[in-house]
Each structure stands twice: as structure tokens, then as C-alpha cells.
Design a protein around this nucleic acid. Structure first.
Length: 491
DNA sequence: TGAAATGTTGGGGCG
DNA sequence: ACGCCCCAACATTTC
């Protein structure tokens, strides 16, 4: 009688799950366990929106395991202690999991792996969430990549298609008397019901992930290259939370794309695969530069004079009452659905870091807490991209104008009307700049600026100039100590 | 009617 | 995955 433990983490699926397949091979008993860690001692404990997703994803995985004759054992606490307890209680000889790559997780898992091996167990880990391990793709000299395009070329040269593994047809039943904690006892769902809107937007779990992706592939993929830029349209796949929690693997995504006869030829396919590659690149960067979740990759940005006492401004941004319709629409979409269209993520991030001169880390914190797809690598890279301080980032002087972006990417104002209903009666021509509609016209549609909808919280021209000046400090090659400076005050 | 003023569009430079 | 400014070229309006 041999028993193995499969430790589920962010690989909440049965198909293409290498750790699960390895665990199943040649054992009589398999214990599938998910361990919810206490937020204490974690630098990035799971955010509120992600907890919501996790709750439903664990439920879906448990249902799938049940249909194969098993269960998902839920526990909360210290992973090593719980694994040891399960191993001891059930005489397990081996433990399997799929690797994670965030800095804390790498350290934790290395520690656990060593401890269990020292206990005499067989421990095997696998790649279940990336096309390539972060260390697999290296520059010719062995250094990690810092620029996307050569990374992408290197990735393509290796071939993106890795055939996924099938789901197991059956599972051994759980041992008699085996039980875990109840899902509700993990307390993943919010006490205050701010999540009601989420149910209208998401179906969670492996089956839903596959359904959503194939639906996208068969409808909007062909026009993805341009369609993805318009936030009022369903032009993107929206599988980011499914990918984050491993309800679908990138290997499966690439494989499902190949069912399209035009693989590699259709315009949408290549640009979609590039986005999958950006996700890999983010994991690559955070793995090799683990400080970049908190600090700029480019340390010249450490001397950037961010604004002071920005608490109220930050709050207005978070709440979606900045007075710029496209910004407020995005922030409200985020709050109501746990997701924001990528085009709009760039626009709101530019306003925060440039016009408001608020540190990108504040934006990253808010996204981390409110996004269902919050992913430490992608989130950190995205924010550093906008702030200009990341690897292969946008130049620091690239500052989005939220009015122009709105006019360009939401020309009919449908996105604004959906999320900022108080402006829904404005004509498309002026919906991105309501302050240019006369007060009497606004009164006709029941809007008084400053009352029903705010005036813009910053002057775009002045704040742009302020940002250019502040960000200009990075041009100074080095900081010369004042006492040595020939132009210093005392000279 | 013609000349000057005013408006519009597009490319280059630059942050 | 940008925007602003400047200027030229051209269009339209004004008196």
C-alpha cells in the first residue's frame, strides 16, 4: 500500500497537471491537499478579490475530484507542519507539487522540499504554470533577459508548443476517516458583500476556463490585434484569473490555439501569443530580480521626488472619482468586477504615477487587492512599465492624456456610459470632457459638475509639466554629494 | 475681388 | 502600448 500527497497551490485543475500525474503513477492512495497560509509573514498575502476567486476555484476543483471518486482536502496553517502531519497520519512516502516562482514562494518551497527530503520522503516538483522555466531562457552569455523582444525571439526559437497532458480518468478514493477543514472555515469570502457584482462576470474553475478560452478563440481572436484596444468590447480573452490560479495552463492555451487552422497565420494569433509571452517574461524578471515587486528595476528611479501627502488623491483615484471619465470608468469596472481592461490599466496607471506623482507601488497595492487576476510578477512588471522604471519599460516621458485616450479607444463613450452612468446622457463628442458641456446643458440631463460628477482633480497640462520635471531627475548620471559639487551652495 | 486673418491637417523634434 | 509644440502647407473666412 503506497500513498502520495499532491499539494495543490495555483494549479487548480486536473488536466495538464504534471504533479498530479506523477503522484498518480503507481500509488494506491493519493491525498490531494490545498493549504491556506496565514497572511502573517507573507510580504504579499493574497488580496481580497483573489480570495473570492480562490474560494470558488477550490470548490470547483473539489467538485471535479469528487466526480473522479476523490476529494480535495482543505487545511489552513503552516504548510510544512500540515504536510508532515498528513504524511505521518497516512504513511505517505512521496509528495508532489507544481512549482511557483514568486520570491517568497521559491524560498518557502525550497525549505519545505529540503525538510521533507531530510525526513526521508520522495519529493518531486514540476512546471505546471509556465511554457518555460524562468531559468530556461537565457541570453547567450547566460544572463537573464531584460528586454522583451529578444526574449520573445529566443522563446519562439525554442518552439511555443508543448503538448499538454490529459486529465486522469479516475482517482483513488481518500483513505477512510480522512477529512479536512470546510471551505467556509477558510473565510475567503468577504464579510461585507462587495463581491455581488463578481457573480455576473465570472464563472470560476477549470471547465469555465476552457469554455471561456475556446469561446474567445472562436470569436474574437481573429480581430484581437485591434479589438483588444477597445475596452467597451469583449476583444480580449479575459482568462487572466484562470491562468493565475492554474485553472488552465499556458501549454493548453497554445495547444487550443493550434486547433485553429490558421495557427501562426491569423493576425490575432501572433499578437495573442505575444501576450502569453509577456506573462512568461514577467515571471522571468521577478524570478531573476526578486526585489522588483517592491523596488524599481532601474535604481535611478529611487531618487524620484514623488508627491507628498497624496492620501486624498490616492483615495479619489481608487474610488473612481477623479473627474476624468475614462479613468473613473476603469476604476469602477475594477471595483465592480475585479478586473480592468488592459488599455485602461495603462491609462489609470499613467495618471497615478505621472499626473498625480503617486508612487507606482501604491497603485500596485490597490490592484493587488482588487484584481481577481492579481499576479505578483505581471502586476509588478506592469506598474514598473508604466512608471518607466522597469525592464523594457515605457520611456518616463510617455504620459497618457486620459481625454485623448478616451476619444481614441472609446469613441462612442460606451465604456464610460456603462461604468459612469451619471454621464450616460452626454453626447459622445463631449463624454470624455464633461466640463466642456455648458452648465445649462448639463442641468438638462440632471448633472451638476462638482456635485453629481467631480471636476477633474488635476490640470492635465500643469501636472504633465510637473511630472516631466520630477522624472527628469533620472537623467542625472550620478548624485554628486553637495560638499564636492563645484556648483554647491557653499562654493 | 484680393489680401490678410483665421482655421485645419500633418510631419518632425523632443520630453 | 504617447503627447505637445512648432511650423509648413493648405483651406476657409473676413472685410
Amino acid at each position: 500500500m503506497t500513498t502520495a500527497v499532491i499539494w495543490f497551490r495555483r494549479d487548480l485543475r486536473l488536466s495538464d497537471n504534471p504533479a498530479l500525474l506523477a503522484g498518480l503513477a503507481g500509488v494506491d492512495n493519493l491525498i490531494p491537499v490545498y493549504i491556506h497560509q496565514s497572511p502573517i509573514n507573507q510580504s504579499w498575502p493574497i488580496g481580497s478579490a483573489s480570495r473570492w476567486w480562490l474560494h470558488h476555484s477550490l470548490k470547483a476543483l473539489d467538485d471535479s475530484l469528487c466526480s473522479l471518486g476523490s476529494r480535495l482536502v482543505l487545511r489552513h496553517g503552516n504548510p510544512l507542519e500540515i504536510l508532515r502531519e498528513l504524511i505521518k497520519a497516512h504513511g505517505a512516502e512521496s509528495v508532489y507539487w507544481n512549482r511557483l516562482y514568486d520570491p517568497d514562494e521559491v524560498a518557502r518551497d525550497a525549505f519545505i522540499k529540503k525538510a521533507l527530503r531530510d525526513d526521508g520522503l520522495r519529493v518531486e516538483t514540476f512546471n505546471g504554470s509556465l511554457l518555460f522555466e524562468p531559468w530556461e531562457i537565457r541570453r547567450p552569455g547566460g544572463e537573464p533577459y531584460r528586454v522583451f523582444t529578444p526574449y520573445w525571439k529566443a522563446m519562439q526559437a525554442l518552439g511555443l508548443h508543448r503538448p499538454p497532458e490529459p486529465a486522469p480518468a479516475a482517482m483513488p478514493p481518500l483513505a477512510e476517516g480522512m477529512h479536512g477543514d470546510s471551505l467556509d472555515s477558510l473565510e475567503l469570502l468577504p464579510r461585507i458583500p462587495w463581491d455581488l457584482g463578481f457573480y455576473d462576470f465570472w464563472s470560476v474553475g477549470e471547465a469555465a476556463a476552457k469554455a471561456r478560452f475556446t469561446e474567445f478563440r472562436d470569436t474574437n481572436l481573429a480581430s484581437y490585434k485591434t479589438g483588444r484596444d477597445f475596452p467597451s468590447q469583449a476583444g480580449t480573452s479575459r482568462i487572466s484569473p484562470h491562468l493565475h490560479f492554474g485553472e488552465i495552463s499556458p501549454r493548453q492555451v497554445v495547444d487550443f490555439l493550434r486547433h485553429d487552422q490558421d495557427f501562426g497565420l491569423a493576425g490575432g494569433c501572433e499578437s495573442y501569443l505575444r501576450e502569453i509571452a509577456w506573462r512568461e517574461f514577467a515571471a522571468h524578471l521577478l524570478f531573476h530580480f526578486p526585489h522588483t515587486a517592491d523596488s524599481p528595476m532601474d535604481d535611478r528611479f529611487l531618487r524620484l521626488p514623488w508627491g507628498k501627502d497624496y492620501g486624498d488623491d490616492l483615495k479619489r483615484w481608487e474610488m473612481g472619482s477623479t473627474g476624468f471619465p475614462i479613468i473613473d470608468a476603469g476604476m469602477r469596472e475594477l471595483w465592480h468586477t475585479g478586473w480592468m481592461h488592459n488599455r485602461v490599466r495603462m491609462i489609470v496607471a499613467s495618471l497615478l504615477t505621472k499626473n498625480l506623482l503617486i508612487p507606482w507601488q501604491e497603485g500596485a497595492r490597490w490592484f493587488w487587492d482588487t484584481l481577481v487576476d492579481a499576479d505578483l510578477a505581471s502586476n509588478s512588471m506592469g506598474w514598473q512599465w508604466t512608471a518607466g522604471c522597469g525592464a523594457d519599460a515605457a520611456p518616463y516621458f510617455r504620459i497618457f492624456n486620459p481625454i485623448l485616450q478616451g476619444e481614441r479607444f472609446d469613441p462612442q463613450g460606451e465604456y464610460v456610459r456603462r461604468w459612469v452612468p451619471e454621464l450616460s446622457a452626454l453626447p459622445s463628442r463631449l463624454i470624455h470632457k464633461p466640463w466642456e458641456v455648458g452648465d445649462s446643458k448639463l442641468a438638462d440631463i440632471g448633472v451638476k459638475l462638482g456635485n453629481d460628477y467631480p471636476y477633474p482633480m488635476v490640470d492635465l497640462k500643469a501636472s504633465r509639466e510637473r511630472a516631466l520635471k520630477a522624472f527628469g531627475v533620472i537623467k542625472t548620471p550620478t548624485v554628486v554629494p553637495t560638499e564636492y559639487s563645484s556648483t554647491g551652495r557653499g562654493a
